[in-house]
């Protein structure tokens, strides 16, 4: 029954700063449940973020929390994990933070296959600065800096992560809360770089400008267009038009993890 989130949240920090209807709180709840399921010792868990709405998440959680600079979460987290491989290191942040200004760190953390769990909340927009388009804003949509429609093509974060070498890549949405904690749990347990993309909503900066009548409209869009990977396999490209796949998109348990590789290198150096 009623879940005990409060034990994971720093006293006095709620209500949080996110706007009414923003899905980041749903993701935070999922993350807490996943950390509980994995029985993560919070003293030994670092939660690292960059800048933006989603990057405010670590401040609420009772753990070793590191709110860094714009785009740099994966790079700070790499330093933490390398220096103390025994720590659980989780990154959280948004689409702009992770794939635009932080894109280089993102792909290289994937390439190294370092044991981080990166929960990336994709709400298609820069929310904190007031709704400028991000690499994930769909082409043609309106943002404060695309008054005539977004001319840019779009990053598919999960595909980007798979292409860059992440060994666990999964996608879900803010409308699938049980799947959020299931996938984050799998990501935490996975030894290597795990990316969990959560499609999210930003009613304030994206929804209103793009004629969603309410946050409910946005949530319904997430619910109606999510297609589980297995179901998608039986669908035609026409049927999949405008849909997005959810579930585990890629999982490779063979590729060695970076810190373990470095440990092996260390032994070699010390025996030389």
């Amino acid at each position: 029954m009623a879940y005990d989130y409060e034990s994971s949240i720093r006293p006095g920090k709620l209500p949080h700063i996110w706007c009414p209807g923003c899905g980041h709180g749903i993701v935070m709840k999922g993350l807490i449940r996943a950390m509980d399921t994995c029985e993560l010792d919070r003293k030994n868990t670092a939660i690292v973020s960059g800048i933006g709405c989603a990057s405010r998440l670590p401040g609420y959680l009772d753990a070793c929390t590191l709110h860094t600079a714009h785009g740099r979460a994966a790079a700070f987290a790499t330093g933490v994990k390398m220096a103390k491989p025994g720590m659980n290191v989780i990154c959280v942040g948004g689409d702009g933070d992770g794939t635009a200004i932080g894109g280089n760190h993102f792909i290289h953390a994937c390439r190294r296959n370092i044991d981080l769990t990166y929960v990336i909340m994709n709400n298609y927009i820069y929310g904190m600065t007031g709704g400028q388009f991000s690499p994930c804003t769909p082409t043609g949509m309106l943002a404060s800096t695309t008054p005539y429609g977004n001319p840019d093509p779009v990053f598919d974060i999960s595909k980007l992560a798979i292409g860059a070498g992440a060994t666990f890549v999964a996608r879900t949405t803010a409308m699938h809360p049980r799947q959020i904690d299931k996938l984050i749990t799998q990501g935490i347990k996975h030894k290597g770089m795990a990316i969990i993309e959560v499609l999210d909503d930003c009613p304030t900066s994206y929804g209103r400008r793009n004629k969603f009548r309410s946050v409910i409209d946005m949530m319904k869009r997430l619910k109606d267009n999510a297609v589980p990977v297995k179901a998608a396999a039986k669908m035609t490209p026409e049927q999949l038009e405008g849909k997005f796949l959810t579930g585990v998109l890629y999982h490779d348990t063979e590729l060695p993890e970076y810190c373990e590789q470095y440990e092996a290198l260390t032994k070699k150096a010390q025996n030389a």
């Binding site: 009623a2 709620l14 949080h16 009414p20 923003c22 749903i26």
Partner: peptide
Amino acid sequence: IKCMQCELLCPDFAIKVHD
């Protein structure tokens, strides 16, 4: 019916379903 949807989907930690 205690499906928990409201609690799971509340972004604001504002609703809880108790037995």
